[in-house]
C-alpha cells in the first residue's frame, strides 16, 4: 500500500475549516477586537465632525485598521501560540503537511476575518450617525482596502514564524502592539510623530498602504510628501521583503524547533 500523500490545497482547506469551526465554537472573542476600534471610531467622529468630513474619514479609517490589525496580524501568530499551549503543535508537525501550509490557511482566514472586522467598524460608525462615509471612488477604495490587508497579512506571516520559532513570541508581540498602532499611523498621522520614529513606521508595510489609502479617500490629503505612487511602491517593496523574510525563516524554522525541542513548553 502506497503511503498517503498530503495535498497543499487540501491542507489549506482543512486549516481554514478548523479556524472557522474554532471561531464558531466561541465567537465572543471577536467582541474585544471590535469594541476598542468601534469606540475609537465613535469618539473620533464626535471630536472631529466639526473639522470636516474628511478628517472624520481619516479617524474612521484608523479605527477600521485597528480592528483588522488585531485580527489579521495577531490571529496568525496567536494560533501557533495556541498550538503550543494546547499541545497540538506536536501532532501537527508530525503530519506530512509542512507547517507553512497550516500557517497559510490561518493567514487566509484571519485576513477574511480582519476585513469583516474593519467593515463592521465602518458600518457601526455610519449607522450610528446615519450618514454614509464619504467616498470619492468606492471601487478604488475597496481594492486599496484589500491591498492594505495583504500588507498586514505579510507582517502576520512573519509573526507566525516567530511564534513557531520561540515560545517568547507572545511577549515580543505584547510589547510591540502599541508601537504598531501608533507607528503605522492608524491612530494619528505618522507625520505628527517625532522624527526619530519615522524609520520604525517605514519598515512596516501597512504604514505605506494606509497612507496610500488615505490619498485615495481624502481629497487634498498630504500624508508623506512623496505622493500616492511612491506609497504604493513602498508598500509593495516592504511587503515583498516581509514575505521573503517569512519564507526564509520558515525554511529553517521547522528544523530549528526539532533541534531545540521546546514544542510543548508553555
Amino acid at each position: 500500500m502506497a503511503p498517503n500523500a498530503y495535498s497543499r490545497g487540501r491542507s489549506l482547506v482543512a486549516v481554514l475549516r478548523l479556524s472557522v469551526l474554532t471561531f464558531l465554537a466561541d465567537p465572543q472573542w471577536l467582541i474585544p477586537s471590535l469594541i476598542a476600534p468601534v469606540v475609537f471610531g465613535l469618539v473620533a467622529y464626535e471630536l472631529f465632525s466639526g473639522a470636516g468630513p474628511f478628517f472624520v474619514l481619516y479617524a474612521i479609517l484608523g479605527a477600521g485598521m485597528m480592528s483588522m490589525w488585531g485580527q489579521t496580524l495577531y490571529g496568525s501568530g496567536w494560533a501557533t501560540g495556541a498550538d503550543r499551549h494546547l499541545g497540538t503543535l506536536e501532532p501537527t508537525l508530525s503530519s506530512p503537511t509542512p507547517y507553512l501550509y497550516v500557517v497559510g490557511g490561518r493567514v487566509i482566514w484571519n485576513t477574511v476575518a480582519g476585513l469583516f472586522g474593519g467593515a463592521i467598524v465602518f458600518a457601526v460608525v455610519a449607522v450610528t450617525y446615519g450618514r454614509p462615509i464619504p467616498l470619492s471612488d468606492p471601487l478604488d477604495f475597496v481594492l486599496m482596502f484589500l491591498f492594505v490587508i495583504v500588507t498586514l497579512a505579510s507582517v502576520g506571516v512573519v509573526f507566525a514564524a516567530a511564534y513557531v520559532y520561540t515560545r517568547y513570541a507572545g511577549f515580543i508581540q505584547n510589547v510591540g502592539e502599541f508601537a504598531f498602532y501608533v507607528g503605522t499611523g492608524c491612530m494619528f498621522p505618522v507625520v505628527l510623530l517625532p522624527f526619530w520614529t519615522n524609520p520604525i513606521s517605514l519598515v512596516l508595510p501597512p504604514t505605506w498602504a494606509l497612507d496610500a489609502l488615505r490619498y485615495l479617500a481624502i481629497p487634498g490629503y498630504q500624508g508623506f510628501s512623496w505622493g500616492f505612487w511612491w506609497d504604493i511602491i513602498g508598500a509593495v517593496g516592504t511587503t515583498l521583503v516581509y514575505l521573503v523574510i517569512a519564507g526564509t525563516v520558515f525554511k529553517s524554522v521547522e528544523r530549528h524547533v526539532l533541534e531545540v525541542g521546546d514544542l510543548n513548553d508553555w
Partner: peptide
C-alpha cells in the same frame, strides 16, 4: 493535551486525516 478542545472528536480526526492525506 494535544487535541483541539473546542471542536468535536470527529472534527479533530477529520482535520488530521486531511493533514495526513487519508
Amino acid at each position: 493535551r494535544g487535541l483541539y478542545n473546542r471542536i468535536s472528536a470527529r472534527e479533530n480526526l477529520r482535520y488530521f486525516a486531511d493533514l495526513f492525506g487519508v
